[in-house]
Each structure stands twice: as structure tokens, then as C-alpha cells.
């Protein structure tokens, strides 16, 4: 009699104190990270931040120097064989066989996962359709375009229906429309319940993530939802107000919240940071009116994550947590 215990889990990934040294060089430095089941977690950071190294340790491809890793409750590297069954992995570099065709690559990896016969065939056809690769199924992987290669790699990662997808820069060097389509696939998979950990250098992609972790020089320097991060970095919402005519900075008494003052088409553009725009904005407009300035427009603006990223990495904001 086999007793099946379903572990109800909150976290797909729990990492604490993770450290990796290459000789004297510390590539990953006491990293703590948690990814919830069902989340799309974006892992950001400049080149050499240690993202790939972290991912490799998570997958048991590299031994950590220190720290503990749990993936769906399994300790890594000890229980790596369990991890492999539930994880789909896409390496940063294209790592499928260029001298095998699309179909042969999927077939080979499918067999390694114990699939065979009709089951395997159906699964491959399903994936080829999902990823729109049916027309090139007999083409050698080495002859595919960049976008097709990425989709094939995703297909191989998905062959055994993993609960967790780990993708290391899946969209590097791919055109924007193809990147958008790729994210459509990811969102679709996520809706069906797949937890996704993805690294990227594209900030517009990061907006798609439920939560983001920002890494720099081996350390996690910020973590939270995209909104939380923006708010944290700039200390609140950013509002853009256009005043008629040239207004000197001295003429304003809003210096505390003023972030930037520029001129555009003979008018003055102010950027201000407000703790909570919806509450503070009416009062602010009234005050401007009181000192005789004419407000042409006033609206909250969407800062991009790119700006958040630059602020954080250039060190203007010290270690912060939400």
C-alpha cells in the first residue's frame, strides 16, 4: 500500500545564506530568496551579478560554498534527483544538439524522462503546436533562427510537464515581437499553475513578473512587486505638472518634493515625488494656484523599472527591502 502525501507548499524556492566563492572571488554573497508557488519571479541584475551562478546552484549543477537551498521542500544538492523530475530548465546559452532536428531533440529528452511510444509522440506534437514549431520540426536545431531556438529550448524544458520552470535569459538577443510572444507562452503556462523563475535584462519584461529580485555583485539588493519597488526607490509616486511660462525654481516653495525642473515649449515641467499622490495632489495644486502659477496639466507618471534599476545599481539608494 503506497501512502501518497501531498505536501501543501507555500514556497517553491527557499534559499538562505547562499554563498558561492570562486577562489577568493565571491560570486554570490549570503543570498536569501523566496519564491511562492504559482508566481512568476523575475531575477534581475547587471552582467556578472551572480544570477546564473545562483540558478546553477539551485539546480544542483554547481555546489554551493555555503547556504541552504530548498526546492519544493527538497534539499539541494542532496535531493537533486527529485528536483530534476519537477523542474524544467533553460540555460543561458543555447544548449540543445545543433546536429539533431527539432523533433529529434525533443524525442531524445522525452525518452530521458521516461516517455515513449504514443505518449511521447503526442506530447511532442502538442508542444510543437503550442510553440508554433510544427513547420520546422525536421530542421536541424543549428539551422533555426534565434527565436525558434528559444522556443525549442522552452519546448524541451516543458516536455515532462514541470511544476517549476527555471529560465536563464530566455529572450536574450531576440526581437521585441518574438519576446512578446514568448512571454505570452510563459503567462499561459503560469495560468495553468507553473511556477516560473526567469532572469532577464529587459525591463519591460520584468513588468510582467509578479515579483522581482534585484541582484548586484552577488547580493540581493531589492525585492518586491514592480509597484513596490518603484515606490520604494523614489519614496512615493511621481507626478508631472506643467506650468505656463518660465518659472524659476526659487519661485516655488515645493523644494522638498521637487525632483526635477525642466522647460518644454516655453512652459515649465515639474516632477515631484508624493508619498501618496491621490491624497496630496489637490492640496498641492491649490498651493500653486495661490502663488499665482497657472497649471496646464497634472498627472501621475509611470516610472519604468529601468529607472528603478539604475537608481539601485548605481547605489543612490542603499540596501532596501519592502
Amino acid at each position: 500500500m503506497v501512502l501518497v502525501i501531498t505536501r501543501l507548499m507555500e514556497y517553491a524556492i527557499e534559499i538562505s545564506g547562499l554563498t558561492k566563492k570562486f577562489g577568493d572571488f565571491v560570486a554570490v554573497d549570503r543570498l536569501d530568496l523566496r519564491v511562492k508557488v504559482g508566481e512568476i519571479f523575475g531575477f534581475l541584475g547587471p552582467n556578472g551579478a551572480g544570477k546564473t551562478t545562483t540558478i546553477r546552484m539551485m539546480c544542483g549543477l554547481m555546489r554551493q560554498t555555503k547556504g541552504t537551498i530548498k526546492i519544493y521542500g527538497y534539499s539541494i544538492p542532496e535531493e537533486r534527483s527529485e528536483l530534476i523530475k519537477i523542474t524544467g530548465y533553460m540555460a543561458q546559452r543555447f544548449s540543445l544538439y545543433e546536429d539533431l532536428s527539432v523533433y529529434e531533440n525533443m524525442e531524445f529528452f522525452g525518452k530521458l524522462y521516461g516517455l515513449n511510444g504514443k505518449n511521447l509522440e503526442n506530447r511532442i506534437i502538442e508542444l510543437l503546436e503550442f510553440l508554433d514549431l510544427k513547420d520546422v520540426k525536421n530542421r536541424l536545431a543549428g539551422r533555426l533562427s534565434g527565436g525558434m531556438k528559444q522556443r525549442l529550448a522552452l519546448g524541451v524544458a516543458l516536455i515532462h510537464r514541470p511544476k517549476l520552470l527555471v529560465l536563464d535569459e530566455p529572450t536574450a538577443g531576440v526581437d521585441p515581437p518574438i519576446r512578446r510572444a514568448f512571454w505570452e507562452y510563459l503567462r499561459g503556462l503560469n495560468k495553468e499553475g507553473t511556477t516560473i523563475l526567469v532572469t532577464t535584462h529587459y525591463m519591460d519584461e520584468a513588468e510582467n513578473c509578479d515579483r522581482i529580485g534585484l541582484m548586484n555583485r552577488g547580493r540581493l539588493i531589492a525585492e518586491g512587486t514592480p509597484r513596490e519597488l518603484k515606490k520604494m526607490v523614489f519614496g512615493g509616486d511621481i507626478v508631472e505638472i506643467v506650468l505656463q511660462g518660465y518659472v524659476q525654481e526659487g519661485a516655488l516653495n515645493e523644494t522638498a518634493s521637487l525632483k526635477e525642473l525642466t522647460y518644454r515649449d516655453g512652459d515649465t515641467v515639474l516632477r515631484l515625488v508624493l508619498k501618496d499622490a491621490s491624497k496630496e495632489l489637490p492640496a498641492l495644486l491649490r498651493r500653486l494656484d495661490d502663488i499665482g502659477l497657472r497649471v496646464l496639466s497634472a498627472e501621475p507618471i509611470n516610472v519604468t523599472l529601468e529607472e528603478v534599476f539604475i537608481e539601485l545599481v548605481t547605489g543612490r539608494v542603499e540596501k532596501a527591502a519592502v
Partner: peptide
């Protein structure tokens, strides 16, 4: 090799 050893 990296992809290969991520399979069982």
C-alpha cells in the same frame, strides 16, 4: 552537457 544532466 548542462541540459543533459538536468534530465534524469
Amino acid at each position: 552537457f548542462e541540459q543533459l544532466i538536468m534530465s534524469p
